[in-house]
Amino acid sequence: MGKPTKEKMIEMYRVMAKIRKTEQKLMEVFSNGEILGFLHVSIGQEAAPVGICSHLNEADYIATTHRGHGHAIAKGIDLKMAMAELFGKKAGYCLGRSGSMHLADKSRGIMGANGIVGAGIPIATGAAFAAKYKKTDQVVVATFGEGATGEGAFHEALNFAAIKKLPIVYLCENNGWAEFSPMSIHAPVQSVTQRALGYDIPAVSVENEVLEIYEAAGKAVERARNGEGPTLIEVRSERWYGHYVGDAQKYRDKENVAQAMAKDCLLNFEKDLLQSKVLKKQDIEKINADLDTEIEAAVSFARECPYPEASEMMEGLYL
């Protein structure tokens, strides 16, 4: 598993930029009050979803978290329908019932974001069980943060997946902050990879750089597809903003935030691509301008779509 091709790298850059720009736009419309409830952005963490999803087919599955826009975009979610869901509109993926914390797209194997920390991990493991049961060659990715590794769900899932050699990759984005507390409050270990040792699951820790993640993910996905069982990848990423949009992060030093923001996986990749002449300045401008147009179109679509009727609330509770 070598470096990605030039075309692949350009696409990876485009998707990372799409995640960044989409979430920046979401922060704006959330502040306007156009999006309800909670919004958790992953700005600064775009490398992980793109690094792993670059190895997945449409039939492969990913289960994501409350901070899951990036994973959904990297797995190919339709931006208009996703935006409509975030705006609570009937045209959204979940009929406007669920919003940001439950984005799902069955047609692309996006099993759904989850509002309960760690809860998606055993569910994703069940998808891997189903793939093995049906003898497909599908691979499943479970994403979570380091905070979720304190949950029983994480340990129970890893234990079972290791016993059964299930085709799954556990992708931990360790951004150092679990809701409002640093990792030292949550774990006695320095790295989440140490957690995997007890389950005899191979684990690797990588920097928040897309090509590093791409390489580690390539090996893990290949192992899973070959029936060799689960792998855990820890990405040492950074959380730029609060737990949710609007969280002033008073529990965190300004310096700590500044250091996080200085590690910009998107900017670093952009510099790499310019330096290696994969992209020129004007290519980058074009990609970003096209993304702006696409995102604006998605927002306009979402704004114009109708909300569900109150009378529709009771529909479909039971089949």
Binding site: Y61, A63, M111, A119, P122, I123, A124, T125, G126, A127, A128, F129, A130, A131, Y133, K134, G152, A153, H155, E156, A157, N159, F160, I163
Partner: peptide, 26 residues
């Protein structure tokens, strides 16, 4: 053992696992 599946003592884990498997067609 593929269809009569013994599990660890892990009720949350295997119940959620079954939920994931059910949502994938089992």
């Amino acid at each position: 053992p593929e269809r009569i599946v013994d599990t660890p003592i892990s009720e949350l884990g295997f119940t959620s696992l079954a939920a994931g498997a059910a949502s994938c067609g089992l």
